[in-house]
Amino acid sequence: MAVDNGTSTEVPRATPATPVAVEVPLADRPFERVNQPTPFLRGFWPTAKEIWDYRELLGQLIKKELKVKYKDSVLGFFWTLLRPLLYLLVYAVAIGVFLGSGRVIPQFGVYLFTGLLAWTLFTDILGGCTGSIVGNAGLVKKVYFPRELFPLAVVGAGLVNFLLQAVILVGAYVVTWTFPAPGDLLLVPLALVALVLFATGLGLILAAGNVFLRDITYLVEVGLLLWFWMTPIVYDWTKVRTTLVDDHSLTALFEVYLANPMANIVLAFQRALWPGGLTEQGQPFYYDGNLYLRLGVIILVGLVFVWFAQRVFARWQGNFAQEL
């Protein structure tokens, strides 16, 4: 018989067992997309804001582009000045002396350099952008940030080199003591904006395309060579007009030639920065069209082109890491 002594014994309750975490193998884990897809028509501005948030990183990438380009080089940044000077010397001798253009076009050296100044910036941007994603494959596969920063860093480094090369042109003005007329100097910033927009849009597409088709690098080299001779840099535009319009009545083909954005940009640089065109001898080589209107159209088209190129780049970048 049990006797109640006034005390009770509390029986402990069973506590639920703590679940044991089971580590899922990495191969069996679901993929998580880092950059969420955005609508094609409305994704540009969120990306632009994200690029602005990473502006400090963009500055560091620009510095890296400038340093890596001439790494372990004895002359370093002096190559930025020597390369256009060597081009100028070769073309001045071959075209100006042997073919006689220097006897016809006044201050032929300055005329050449104004065109080479614009063209060098264009080729630096396109050539650098094409290999920008492939060349930074390690970062692309490990860290997330807007991939557009790589081509934009190339554009920034190209602008720095452009400013350094412009010092040579200023030095030529001082040596010859001939200066361009201030009335057309507004063409320079307009032409520079048009060039950067057009080259940036094309560079974004080439950078993304080169990830999937590495032959694009070699196609760009060949294309730029052909493009160079379709632009009035080492010859004057009047020779094209005489050959196509006066001799063969191919006016439509001449208009196609003038539709080349780089032709208009180079013509603008020549009109604004070539003092020889102010002389009576140089007047026939001035393009008499409305370059302000033409550059305005190129800038507007360039803005749309950059938007379109970024949206194409955004569509393709999801497979960059897999392809690299």
Rank of each mutant, 00 (worst) to 15 (best):
G318E: 10
A199D: 09
Y111F: 15
D184S: 14
G76H: 02
L159F: 12
N5M: 11
G76W: 05
S249D: 12
L66S: 06
T18R: 09
I298Q: 11
I95Y: 13
A14Q: 12
I51D: 00
Q165V: 07
S73E: 07
A314W: 05
Q281F: 05
P46K: 12
R311T: 02
G203A: 12
P106D: 00
Q107R: 06
P261L: 05
R83S: 13
L213Q: 09
R29W: 06
I205M: 13
F40A: 09
L195C: 06
R29F: 07
L86S: 09
G115Y: 04
G318F: 15
D288L: 09
F150D: 01
S132L: 10
Q270A: 00
K71T: 08
L267Q: 14
R42K: 11
V222M: 08
F198E: 08
I299D: 04
Q165D: 14
S101V: 06
Y87T: 13
G131Y: 05
R147H: 05
F108E: 05
M262S: 06
L253M: 12
I298H: 08
F285L: 03
N136T: 10
L117S: 11
V196Q: 00
V134G: 02
Y54K: 00
T130M: 04
D215G: 09
P46C: 15
I51E: 01
G296M: 03
A166S: 15
F308C: 04
L250F: 15
